[in-house]
């Protein structure tokens, strides 16, 4: 179900492919484990998990942690880029204003 929603979001341009990879991976992993009981049971046995379905939740939980961490990284990068843009706008605004003022009177400080 979630898989379908993610695909639909990408199709409608609400979600960039770049940010959907982890979601799709989560869907596939959980789906495979839920449908193929034998795989889940073998992994649970190997890891010493006594109740196999709880492994399903563990996998989903780890994926969600990974997605959250990924988002934090993305937000940090966006924050930095946003700051640089704002500083650039500040500077451009100043230069434009200075150019406008220079048209009416002599420039107060030379641009060189």
């Amino acid at each position: 179900m979630l898989f379908g929603v993610v695909i639909d979001f990408i199709r409608r341009g609400l979600l960039k492919e770049k940010y959907s990879v982890l979601w799709l991976a989560l869907c596939v992993a959980v789906m495979v484990l839920a449908v193929k009981r034998s795989i889940l049971d073998t992994i649970a046995l190997k890891l010493g998990v006594s109740y196999p379905p709880s492994l399903l939740f563990l996998v989903a939980f780890l994926f969600i942690l990974l997605i959250l961490l990924h988002f934090s990284v993305v937000i940090s990068i966006l924050h930095e880029k946003n700051k640089i843009l704002a500083q650039e706008i500040t500077m451009l605004r100043h230069i434009v204003k200075q150019g406008r003022d220079a048209g009416t009177s002599s420039a107060p400080e030379s641009l060189e």
Binding site: A86, T90, M91, E109
Partner: peptide
């Protein structure tokens, strides 16, 4: 000379604008 940030960017970014 006055530079005005479009919104509050924080102290570090303010100094950096000055250095830029």
């Amino acid at each position: 000379v006055t530079l005005t940030h479009p919104y509050n960017l924080g102290f570090g970014a303010t100094m950096q604008t000055g250095y830029k």
